[in-house]
Amino acid sequence: MSKLFVNKDKMSYLLRDLTIQVLIYSAIVCVSGVFLWILFDLIRGGSALLSWQFLTDVPRDAGRAGGISSILASTLLVLLIALLAALPISWATAILLTEFISAESPFGRWVRYSLQVLACVPSIIFGLFGYAFFSLYLGLGFSILSGGLTLACMLLPILVSTAEAGLRAVPESYRLSAVALGMSRAATLFHVLLPVAAPAWAAGLLLGIGRAAAETAALMFTSGYVDRMPESLLDSGRVLALHIFDLSMNVPGGDAPAFASALVLILLLLVINLVAMRFTYLWQRKKLNAE
Protein backbone atom coordinates (compact mmCIF):
# COMPACT_ATOMS: atom_id res chain seq x y z
CA MET A 1 0.00 0.00 0.00
CA SER A 2 2.54 2.47 1.15
CA LYS A 3 4.85 1.56 -1.73
CA LEU A 4 2.15 2.45 -4.21
CA PHE A 5 1.79 5.90 -2.66
CA VAL A 6 5.49 6.53 -2.93
CA ASN A 7 5.46 5.56 -6.58
CA LYS A 8 2.53 7.84 -7.22
CA ASP A 9 4.37 10.63 -5.48
CA LYS A 10 7.43 9.99 -7.57
CA MET A 11 5.32 10.07 -10.70
CA SER A 12 3.83 13.45 -9.86
CA TYR A 13 7.30 14.82 -9.11
CA LEU A 14 8.55 13.52 -12.44
CA LEU A 15 5.56 15.01 -14.21
CA ARG A 16 6.12 18.36 -12.55
CA ASP A 17 9.81 18.36 -13.45
CA LEU A 18 8.99 17.44 -17.01
CA THR A 19 6.40 20.22 -17.33
CA ILE A 20 8.83 22.79 -16.02
CA GLN A 21 11.54 21.51 -18.33
CA VAL A 22 9.25 21.74 -21.33
CA LEU A 23 8.22 25.27 -20.35
CA ILE A 24 11.83 26.38 -19.93
CA TYR A 25 12.88 24.88 -23.25
CA SER A 26 9.95 26.43 -25.07
CA ALA A 27 10.90 29.81 -23.62
CA ILE A 28 14.42 29.30 -24.96
CA VAL A 29 13.03 28.29 -28.34
CA CYS A 30 10.89 31.45 -28.38
CA VAL A 31 13.85 33.71 -27.60
CA SER A 32 16.27 32.22 -30.10
CA GLY A 33 13.41 31.63 -32.53
CA VAL A 34 12.80 35.35 -32.86
CA PHE A 35 16.47 35.95 -33.56
CA LEU A 36 16.66 33.08 -36.07
CA TRP A 37 13.48 34.24 -37.80
CA ILE A 38 14.86 37.75 -38.23
CA LEU A 39 18.20 36.40 -39.38
CA PHE A 40 16.51 34.01 -41.83
CA ASP A 41 14.35 36.81 -43.21
CA LEU A 42 17.38 39.05 -43.69
CA ILE A 43 19.43 36.30 -45.32
CA ARG A 44 16.58 35.48 -47.68
CA GLY A 45 16.06 39.11 -48.66
CA GLY A 46 19.64 40.30 -48.65
CA SER A 47 22.05 37.50 -49.41
CA ALA A 48 21.54 37.77 -53.17
CA LEU A 49 22.96 41.28 -53.15
CA LEU A 50 25.64 40.74 -50.55
CA SER A 51 29.08 40.52 -52.11
CA TRP A 52 32.55 41.90 -51.70
CA GLN A 53 31.65 44.59 -54.21
CA PHE A 54 28.63 45.61 -52.13
CA LEU A 55 30.95 46.21 -49.19
CA THR A 56 33.58 48.16 -51.16
CA ASP A 57 31.46 50.28 -53.51
CA VAL A 58 29.85 53.64 -52.68
CA PRO A 59 26.06 53.93 -52.97
CA ARG A 60 24.65 55.09 -56.30
CA ASP A 61 21.15 55.96 -57.55
CA ALA A 62 19.90 56.86 -54.03
CA GLY A 63 21.26 53.56 -52.68
CA ARG A 64 19.46 51.25 -55.12
CA ALA A 65 22.74 50.47 -56.86
CA GLY A 66 26.34 50.41 -55.73
CA GLY A 67 27.37 49.43 -52.24
CA ILE A 68 27.76 50.72 -48.73
CA SER A 69 31.49 51.31 -48.24
CA SER A 70 31.10 54.99 -47.29
CA ILE A 71 28.16 54.14 -45.02
CA LEU A 72 30.24 51.51 -43.23
CA ALA A 73 33.13 53.96 -42.80
CA SER A 74 30.81 56.61 -41.33
CA THR A 75 29.18 54.07 -39.03
CA LEU A 76 32.51 52.89 -37.64
CA LEU A 77 33.78 56.46 -37.21
CA VAL A 78 30.64 57.59 -35.37
CA LEU A 79 30.84 54.51 -33.16
CA LEU A 80 34.51 55.12 -32.44
CA ILE A 81 33.95 58.75 -31.46
CA ALA A 82 30.98 57.85 -29.28
CA LEU A 83 32.96 55.19 -27.42
CA LEU A 84 36.10 57.30 -27.09
CA ALA A 85 34.04 60.09 -25.54
CA ALA A 86 31.70 57.98 -23.42
CA LEU A 87 33.89 55.18 -22.06
CA PRO A 88 36.35 57.21 -19.93
CA ILE A 89 33.60 59.37 -18.48
CA SER A 90 31.17 56.59 -17.71
CA TRP A 91 33.68 54.09 -16.38
CA ALA A 92 35.27 56.75 -14.18
CA THR A 93 31.78 57.64 -12.90
CA ALA A 94 31.04 54.00 -12.14
CA ILE A 95 34.31 53.63 -10.21
CA LEU A 96 33.56 56.79 -8.26
CA LEU A 97 30.03 55.65 -7.43
CA THR A 98 31.05 52.24 -6.15
CA GLU A 99 34.55 52.61 -4.74
CA PHE A 100 34.95 56.16 -3.55
CA ILE A 101 31.62 57.32 -2.18
CA SER A 102 29.06 55.42 -0.15
CA ALA A 103 26.02 54.05 -1.94
CA GLU A 104 23.68 56.02 0.32
CA SER A 105 25.34 59.42 -0.04
CA PRO A 106 23.12 62.19 -1.44
CA PHE A 107 25.63 62.92 -4.21
CA GLY A 108 25.70 59.28 -5.34
CA ARG A 109 21.91 59.15 -5.29
CA TRP A 110 21.65 62.31 -7.29
CA VAL A 111 24.09 61.08 -9.95
CA ARG A 112 22.28 57.75 -10.17
CA TYR A 113 18.89 59.45 -10.37
CA SER A 114 20.00 61.74 -13.19
CA LEU A 115 21.41 58.76 -15.08
CA GLN A 116 18.12 56.92 -14.72
CA VAL A 117 16.27 59.91 -16.10
CA LEU A 118 18.78 60.11 -18.95
CA ALA A 119 18.19 56.43 -19.72
CA CYS A 120 14.46 57.08 -20.16
CA VAL A 121 14.88 59.93 -22.63
CA PRO A 122 13.80 58.92 -26.17
CA SER A 123 16.60 59.04 -28.69
CA ILE A 124 14.94 61.70 -30.85
CA ILE A 125 15.34 64.10 -27.89
CA PHE A 126 19.07 63.38 -27.89
CA GLY A 127 19.00 64.02 -31.62
CA LEU A 128 17.39 67.44 -31.18
CA PHE A 129 19.76 68.25 -28.29
CA GLY A 130 22.76 67.25 -30.41
CA TYR A 131 21.45 69.30 -33.33
CA ALA A 132 20.97 72.38 -31.13
CA PHE A 133 24.12 72.01 -29.00
CA PHE A 134 26.86 70.26 -30.99
CA SER A 135 25.79 71.14 -34.54
CA LEU A 136 24.60 74.72 -34.10
CA TYR A 137 25.88 76.12 -30.78
CA LEU A 138 29.35 74.58 -30.86
CA GLY A 139 29.48 75.02 -34.63
CA LEU A 140 30.43 71.43 -35.42
CA GLY A 141 27.80 71.42 -38.15
CA PHE A 142 26.28 68.22 -39.44
CA SER A 143 29.27 66.02 -38.89
CA ILE A 144 30.48 62.67 -37.73
CA LEU A 145 31.93 64.45 -34.70
CA SER A 146 28.61 65.92 -33.56
CA GLY A 147 26.86 62.61 -34.28
CA GLY A 148 29.41 60.67 -32.25
CA LEU A 149 29.21 63.09 -29.32
CA THR A 150 25.40 62.96 -29.35
CA LEU A 151 25.57 59.18 -29.24
CA ALA A 152 28.08 59.40 -26.39
CA CYS A 153 25.51 61.29 -24.29
CA MET A 154 23.01 58.55 -25.06
CA LEU A 155 25.40 55.78 -24.06
CA LEU A 156 26.32 57.26 -20.66
CA PRO A 157 23.46 55.69 -18.65
CA ILE A 158 23.95 52.18 -20.11
CA LEU A 159 27.70 52.19 -19.64
CA VAL A 160 27.63 53.64 -16.12
CA SER A 161 24.89 51.39 -14.79
CA THR A 162 26.35 48.15 -16.20
CA ALA A 163 29.85 48.99 -15.00
CA GLU A 164 28.51 49.95 -11.58
CA ALA A 165 26.53 46.72 -11.28
CA GLY A 166 29.64 44.75 -12.28
CA LEU A 167 31.75 46.39 -9.56
CA ARG A 168 29.04 45.96 -6.91
CA ALA A 169 28.88 42.26 -7.71
CA VAL A 170 32.50 41.82 -6.60
CA PRO A 171 32.34 40.29 -3.08
CA GLU A 172 33.20 42.70 -0.25
CA SER A 173 35.71 40.16 1.09
CA TYR A 174 37.97 40.84 -1.92
CA ARG A 175 38.24 44.49 -0.94
CA LEU A 176 38.84 43.63 2.71
CA SER A 177 41.53 41.11 1.77
CA ALA A 178 43.20 43.69 -0.42
CA VAL A 179 43.19 46.21 2.42
CA ALA A 180 44.53 43.56 4.81
CA LEU A 181 47.41 42.93 2.42
CA GLY A 182 48.18 46.63 2.43
CA MET A 183 47.27 47.23 -1.22
CA SER A 184 46.54 50.79 -2.25
CA ARG A 185 43.09 51.67 -3.54
CA ALA A 186 44.34 52.05 -7.09
CA ALA A 187 46.17 48.74 -6.98
CA THR A 188 43.08 46.99 -5.61
CA LEU A 189 41.03 48.50 -8.40
CA PHE A 190 43.36 47.53 -11.24
CA HIS A 191 44.55 44.14 -9.99
CA VAL A 192 41.48 42.77 -8.25
CA LEU A 193 38.22 44.58 -8.94
CA LEU A 194 38.51 45.35 -12.65
CA PRO A 195 39.57 41.84 -13.72
CA VAL A 196 36.74 40.30 -11.71
CA ALA A 197 34.19 42.78 -13.05
CA ALA A 198 35.50 42.66 -16.63
CA PRO A 199 32.80 40.36 -18.09
CA ALA A 200 30.05 42.64 -16.79
CA TRP A 201 31.85 45.66 -18.24
CA ALA A 202 32.23 43.93 -21.57
CA ALA A 203 28.53 43.06 -21.57
CA GLY A 204 27.69 46.70 -20.91
CA LEU A 205 30.04 47.82 -23.65
CA LEU A 206 28.37 45.42 -26.07
CA LEU A 207 24.90 46.66 -25.11
CA GLY A 208 26.15 50.18 -25.71
CA ILE A 209 27.67 49.33 -29.08
CA GLY A 210 24.47 47.56 -30.06
CA ARG A 211 22.34 50.55 -29.13
CA ALA A 212 24.72 52.98 -30.84
CA ALA A 213 24.94 50.98 -34.06
CA ALA A 214 21.17 50.70 -34.27
CA GLU A 215 20.53 54.39 -33.66
CA THR A 216 18.65 56.31 -36.33
CA ALA A 217 16.68 59.14 -34.78
CA ALA A 218 19.53 60.75 -32.84
CA LEU A 219 21.79 60.76 -35.90
CA MET A 220 19.39 62.00 -38.55
CA PHE A 221 19.85 65.57 -37.32
CA THR A 222 23.50 65.35 -36.28
CA SER A 223 25.77 63.14 -38.35
CA GLY A 224 23.34 63.48 -41.20
CA TYR A 225 22.41 62.04 -44.54
CA VAL A 226 25.39 62.55 -46.85
CA ASP A 227 26.42 59.22 -48.39
CA ARG A 228 29.85 60.30 -49.61
CA MET A 229 33.04 58.73 -48.20
CA PRO A 230 33.93 60.92 -45.18
CA GLU A 231 37.22 62.80 -45.54
CA SER A 232 37.38 64.26 -42.04
CA LEU A 233 35.48 64.00 -38.79
CA LEU A 234 33.78 67.28 -39.66
CA ASP A 235 32.16 65.79 -42.74
CA SER A 236 28.60 64.63 -42.59
CA GLY A 237 28.27 60.86 -42.94
CA ARG A 238 25.24 58.59 -43.11
CA VAL A 239 25.25 55.60 -40.72
CA LEU A 240 23.99 52.12 -41.58
CA ALA A 241 20.79 52.29 -39.53
CA LEU A 242 19.76 55.57 -41.19
CA HIS A 243 20.66 54.12 -44.60
CA ILE A 244 18.42 51.10 -43.97
CA PHE A 245 15.59 53.35 -42.77
CA ASP A 246 15.88 55.62 -45.80
CA LEU A 247 16.04 52.73 -48.28
CA SER A 248 13.01 50.94 -46.88
CA MET A 249 10.84 53.99 -46.16
CA ASN A 250 11.85 56.61 -48.68
CA VAL A 251 13.30 54.99 -51.80
CA PRO A 252 11.04 52.99 -54.14
CA GLY A 253 12.87 49.77 -54.99
CA GLY A 254 15.20 50.15 -52.03
CA ASP A 255 14.10 46.98 -50.24
CA ALA A 256 16.78 44.62 -51.58
CA PRO A 257 19.74 46.85 -50.64
CA ALA A 258 17.97 47.61 -47.33
CA PHE A 259 17.88 43.89 -46.54
CA ALA A 260 21.51 43.47 -47.55
CA SER A 261 22.56 46.47 -45.42
CA ALA A 262 20.62 45.13 -42.44
CA LEU A 263 22.37 41.79 -42.88
CA VAL A 264 25.73 43.57 -42.86
CA LEU A 265 24.72 45.43 -39.69
CA ILE A 266 23.75 42.18 -37.92
CA LEU A 267 26.96 40.46 -39.04
CA LEU A 268 29.01 43.46 -37.92
CA LEU A 269 27.41 43.31 -34.46
CA LEU A 270 27.96 39.55 -34.26
CA VAL A 271 31.64 39.95 -35.10
CA ILE A 272 32.06 42.77 -32.57
CA ASN A 273 30.32 40.63 -29.93
CA LEU A 274 32.50 37.59 -30.54
CA VAL A 275 35.73 39.58 -30.61
CA ALA A 276 34.85 41.51 -27.45
CA MET A 277 33.84 38.40 -25.51
CA ARG A 278 36.96 36.51 -26.55
CA PHE A 279 39.15 39.49 -25.71
CA THR A 280 37.57 39.90 -22.25
CA TYR A 281 37.98 36.20 -21.51
CA LEU A 282 41.66 36.19 -22.45
CA TRP A 283 42.42 39.40 -20.58
CA GLN A 284 40.66 38.20 -17.44
CA ARG A 285 42.46 34.85 -17.48
CA LYS A 286 45.83 36.46 -17.98
CA LYS A 287 45.24 39.03 -15.26
CA LEU A 288 43.84 36.64 -12.65
CA ASN A 289 46.20 33.75 -13.29
CA ALA A 290 49.38 35.76 -13.48
CA GLU A 291 48.93 37.27 -10.04
Binding site: D61, A62, G63, M220, G224, R228, S236, D246, N250
Partner: peptide
Protein backbone atom coordinates in the same frame (compact mmCIF):
# COMPACT_ATOMS: atom_id res chain seq x y z
CA UNK B 1 12.79 63.46 -47.30
CA UNK B 2 10.94 63.05 -50.60
CA UNK B 3 13.37 65.35 -52.40
CA UNK B 4 16.54 64.25 -50.57
CA UNK B 5 17.41 61.18 -52.70
CA UNK B 6 16.97 63.28 -55.87
CA UNK B 7 19.03 66.11 -54.38
CA UNK B 8 21.88 63.71 -53.60
CA UNK B 9 21.97 62.60 -57.23
CA UNK B 10 21.74 66.21 -58.46
CA UNK B 11 24.57 67.10 -56.09
CA UNK B 12 26.74 64.24 -57.30
CA UNK B 13 26.44 65.37 -60.91
CA UNK B 14 26.94 69.02 -59.95
CA UNK B 15 30.13 68.08 -58.07
CA UNK B 16 31.49 66.26 -61.09
CA UNK B 17 30.85 69.35 -63.26
CA UNK B 18 32.33 71.78 -60.71
CA UNK B 19 35.48 70.26 -59.18
CA UNK B 20 36.15 71.51 -55.65
CA UNK B 21 32.48 72.06 -54.86
CA UNK B 22 30.74 69.87 -52.30
CA UNK B 23 27.00 69.45 -52.03
CA UNK B 24 25.85 68.15 -48.64
CA UNK B 25 22.23 66.99 -48.46
CA UNK B 26 20.44 66.57 -45.11
CA UNK B 27 16.94 65.25 -44.66
CA UNK B 28 14.37 65.76 -41.88
Amino acid sequence: STIAPLAIELGRRFESLHPGVRVDVQTG
